[in-house]
Amino acid sequence: MSRIILVLVFLIGGLVQAQNVSLEVKMTGFENNNGKVKVGLYNSEEGFLKTVYKNAVVDIQSNTATFTFKDLPKGIYAVSVYHDENANGILDKNGFGMPTEGYGTSNDAKGFMGPPAFADAKFALSKNSKITININN
C-alpha cells in the first residue's frame, strides 16, 4: 500500500513539474560589454517595475546577453532589462529622469513621458518560449 502511495506522489509531482515552462530572454544592441545586464521578470500589473517576481544578473558578450528563466508557472508576464554599465546596481538617469544607461522591455514597449505600461509589455507564457529585447541606448 505504501509503495502505491509513493508511486502516486512521484507521478503527481512529475505532472505538476511538466506543467511549468521556461522563458529564454535574448537581449541585443548593447553599446559595449561593460558591466552587467539586470533582468527582471514581472507577473502582475501592480508590481510591474516595482516588485520583481524573478531576476537575474547576466554578463554581456559581443553586445548581446541571454538568460533563461526556468520552472515558471504558465501565465502572464513582462520583462524589463537594463544595462548596469557602471555596476552601481541602479539604472542611472539624467537630471530630467531619462535613463543614461541602455534599457528595454518585452514587446519593445515604450512609455510616453515615463516608463512603459504593463499592458504594453505583457505576454502570455503557455509553453517553452523565447523572446528578444532590443536595448535602447
Rank of each mutant, 00 (worst) to 15 (best):
H83V: 05
I131G: 03
M1K: 08
F96T: 01
S80T: 04
G95F: 15
K127D: 11
G35D: 07
V21K: 09
N107I: 05
V39N: 02
L49R: 10
F67H: 13
E45M: 11
A18C: 10
D84G: 02
N32P: 00
V81N: 03
L11W: 08
L125G: 01
A56N: 05
N43T: 05
K130R: 14
D71A: 11
Q61D: 08
I90K: 10
G47D: 15
K127Q: 14
K54P: 03
E24P: 01
A109P: 02
G89L: 06
T132S: 14
K26Q: 07
I131D: 03
L6V: 06
K110F: 09
V39R: 04
K38F: 07
I12S: 12
N33S: 12
A117K: 15
N134K: 15
D59A: 14
I90C: 00
P115C: 06
I60H: 00
G75N: 11
S2P: 01
A87E: 15
D59K: 13
Q19H: 11
A121I: 04
E31K: 14
Q19F: 12
K36C: 00
S44P: 03
S62T: 06
G75L: 12
S80H: 05
A78C: 10
G47T: 05
A121V: 04
V25L: 08
N136F: 10
P73V: 11
T66A: 15
I135E: 04
Q61I: 10
E85V: 07
V79N: 04
N86V: 06
I60R: 01
T66C: 10
Y82Q: 02
G104E: 07
F69Q: 00
P73R: 11
I60W: 01
Y103D: 00
D59S: 14
V52P: 01
I133L: 12
L91D: 00
N134S: 14
I4F: 11
Y82I: 05
D71S: 15
A18P: 02
K70T: 12
I5E: 10
N134H: 12
K127L: 08
P116C: 10
G29A: 12
V81T: 02
I60L: 05
L6M: 08
A78T: 06
D59Y: 07
R3V: 03
T64A: 10
S129I: 09
K93D: 02
